[in-house]
């Protein structure tokens, strides 16, 4: 009977897409290859390729008289990094990145802890909105807004004045290194703006890590005699460490590579990002720019290697 035939033999593939589906079902590896190939090409050629090109550039040097690039492999450009004024740039940048990272971790932890442990429902939505909202507006706008906030005529100064604490702000600004004419032209200003723009990148991974810590873990610690401070030190922070490290990778590398914030808010002393920007642009010294750009990569690599050795990822 024809009705029976229809139910026992499989329906033939109809149309191009159905036949394509059949082929992909028979060869699952083909499907994986099709899915992976485009991003792999992007990552491999465009992303890593350009990085490699940069790396190669850093082994060339520039002829001091003609200003032409000499296409011979040499380490002389790297040697140039160790000249006092270049070394200053590197140390200054690393110090700033470290300060921003530590401060971001300290500020982010309680916020992330609250969000992971206590915020539920609408409260949680509000938390995500509060953390993400600043990311939705232009970075330039935020930095300029901070310049106005920190300026001598800005709201912060006004607040100190109104509270009768101008003397405190002025005393702080007169400190060498961190101070300046006003907050907006001081290292403190640069630090505050960095802390503000990169904070979400620390909060979110820390919150994700804390979310995965079962409440019973903290109870067990208390049950075994640990006061809250001891639980924080021996259980909570070690378990949140992968999140803190992930966040610190963001805050550290973003700070090290940035050339806009220190240009708008801060002193005239340069950071690595500005040096790269100037050497590859106006100065036309691509090899030195490339060598400078390698520095953050090296530092991040060292940092991750050290973190892994110290067992920061053991809780993963």
């Amino acid at each position: 009977m024809t009705v029976l035939d229809n139910t026992t033999s499989p329906a033939p593939a109809r149309g191009l897409f159905e036949r394509l589906s059949d082929v992909l079902w028979r060869r699952p590896r083909l499907l994986v290859a099709l899915l992976v190939l485009p991003p792999l090409a992007w990552l491999g050629i465009v992303y890593l390729g350009s990085l490699f090109a940069l790396l190669v550039q850093s082994f060339f040097s520039i002829d001091e008289f003609s200003g032409q690039i000499r296409y011979e492999l040499t380490l002389s450009t790297y040697a140039e990094l160790f000249r006092a004024y270049n070394l200053d740039i590197i140390l200054r940048t690393v110090a700033m990145a470290a300060a921003v990272t530590v401060a971001a971790a300290i500020v982010a932890f309680p916020i992330a802890y609250f969000a992971a442990r206590y915020a539920r429902g609408p409260m949680k939505a509000l938390f995500y909105l509060g953390v993400m909202l600043p990311l939705w507006s232009s970075y330039l706008v935020k930095v300029y807004a901070w310049k106005l906030i920190l300026a001598r005529e800005g709201i912060l100064n006004w607040a100190f004045e109104s509270a009768g604490l101008s003397w405190l702000l002025n005393a702080y600004l007169s400190l060498p290194g961190v101070g300046g004419n006003s907050l907006s032209v001081s290292w403190t200003g640069t630090f505050l703006v960095f802390l503000y723009v990169w904070l979400p990148f620390m909060i979110l991974p820390v919150q994700a890590a804390l979310e995965r810590v079962p409440p019973s873990m903290l109870e067990a610690s208390g049950d075994l005699g640990a006061k809250p401070g001891q639980t924080l030190r021996h259980v909570l922070i070690p378990l949140a460490l992968p999140g803190i490290i992930a966040g610190s990778i963001f805050t550290f590398s973003l700070t090290m590579g940035d050339y806009i914030v220190p240009q708008i808010v801060g002193t005239s002393a340069r950071m690595i990002g500005q040096a790269v920007y100037q050497y590859q642009g106006t100065a036309g010294n691509i090899p030195l720019a490339a060598a400078f750009a390698v520095v953050p990569i090296l530092i991040m690599g060292l940092y991750l290697w050290f973190a892994k050795r110290k067992g920061a990822f053991d809780a993963l």
Partner: peptide, 28 residues
């Protein structure tokens, strides 16, 4: 809890994943 003369075996055991077995037992 940290001053009570009682200890608990948790339903999910709540062992600390970042410590080895000895350090877990010796935690208290």
């Amino acid at each position: 809890p940290y001053r009570r003369p009682v200890n608990t075996v948790f339903q999910d055991y709540a062992l600390f994943p970042h410590l080895n077995v000895r350090d877990n037992v010796a935690y208290g």
